[in-house]
Amino acid sequence: MGDAPITVTAEGLGKEFGEKVALRDLSLSLHRGEIFGLLGPNGAGKSTTLNLWMGFLKPTRGRATVCGLDCTRDHRAVMTRVGHLPEEPTLFDNLTGRELLSFVLTMRGLSKAERWRALDAWAERLGFAADLDQLVAGYSMGMRKKLALLAAMAHQPEVLLLDEPTNGLDPLVAREVRDMLVEQAAAGVTVVLSTHLLDVAERVCHRLGVIVRGELRALGDASEILAATGSGTLEEAFLALTAAPRSAR
């Protein structure tokens, strides 16, 4: 992984909301084809980090880049290279899944026929093809998530930023999603996923970062994190890191 070009970076990245520090001095670089897992308890700053990379938030200090582009300054260019799955996929309820994906393709200026082949195949894998012609209003949480995932991948992005991608999915589909992510990574896509599901992180991610109260407390692959914390399982390591005071890196 070390030789692959760097696609996503954070350089001393920090974000404050008023007096609340959501993210503090985050520095890391992610490579092409890497699956990176952001772990942390609720409210730790995972979504904030993703939103900074998406350019939805403006960093208070530091800089976030994607494919060499500044996420805030070159917001639109970044949007063409990134696929994003928000934590709560709010979609247009009055459209069908197919209409929504068509809209996404048009907005991105892509040729529909070509992309639809891939989208249909993915929908089939997610067991979702039959529901594509239903109104989104009738979708369950899991179906919304699947549709949002398809929308995020519709333009073959170079980077995928996924907020809790397997939440609300049944185990079968969750595994299918994990497999798809691994395939995407193998094809050279950088995947960042924020999650609090440790087994997902352990099974899929090449590297993990544990964020607690806006601070990156551990970074490395699973074995490195286990070694650093002296824990036997990732769960123990996670608990040790989230409970420990700031200096416990």
């Binding site: 709010t90 247009f92 991105r108 949002a148």
Partner: peptide
């Protein structure tokens, strides 16, 4: 403000 539209490169 829809997350979907925010993530699109709208001119």
């Amino acid at each position: 403000d829809q997350p979907l539209l925010r993530a699109l490169p709208t001119h």
